[in-house]
């Protein structure tokens, strides 16, 4: 089994075919979208492939060490940032192909007009800790 991270972006991904900002959706469209996401996670748990998932607020900041005796430096919120992550889901699957299949399914969540958003998701393999018999 291999773990993959599916990353959803507020900003930074290529434009989706159905690229209408969420605040312009109707309440019913929002509800349908959230239900789709919940059902997707539920299905993954049933199939034994779900690891974790979480949505993120866009209200983040940059932080770095300030140097000796100084407090950390905080910069933000990131109004200018080109790449803003909206959330993630981690899956544990048998193959890369299965990970792609699931990312495709997640990307198909309904948006404005009840039509699939087909947004671009970033799919990243985990580095694992396994050792190998090969020498």
């Amino acid at each position: 089994m291999a773990k993959y991270l599916m990353l959803k972006h507020y900003r930074g991904a290529p434009a989706a075919p159905n690229d209408v900002p969420m605040d312009q959706w109707t309440p019913d469209e929002l509800a349908a979208h959230l239900k789709y996401m919940d059902d997707f996670a539920e299905r993954l748990e049933q199939s034994g492939e779900f690891v974790s998932g979480q949505a993120l607020s866009p209200q983040g900041v940059w932080v770095r060490a300030g140097g000796e005796g100084e407090p950390p430096v905080v910069d933000g919120p990131f109004a200018e940032t080109k790449d803003l992550i909206a959330g993630w889901m981690i899956i544990d699957v048998d193959s890369y192909d299965r990970a792609v299949e699931l990312a495709g399914e997640l990307s198909d969540a309904p948006g404005a007009g009840g039509k699939p958003i087909r947004e671009w998701l970033e799919l990243r393999p985990f580095l694992d800790d396994s050792a190998d018999l090969t020498e």
Partner: peptide, 15 residues
Amino acid sequence: AHLVPEATMAQRISR
């Protein structure tokens, strides 16, 4: 051992 939630593993085994 596989770093997944217990509920997920339980489902994997039931399936």
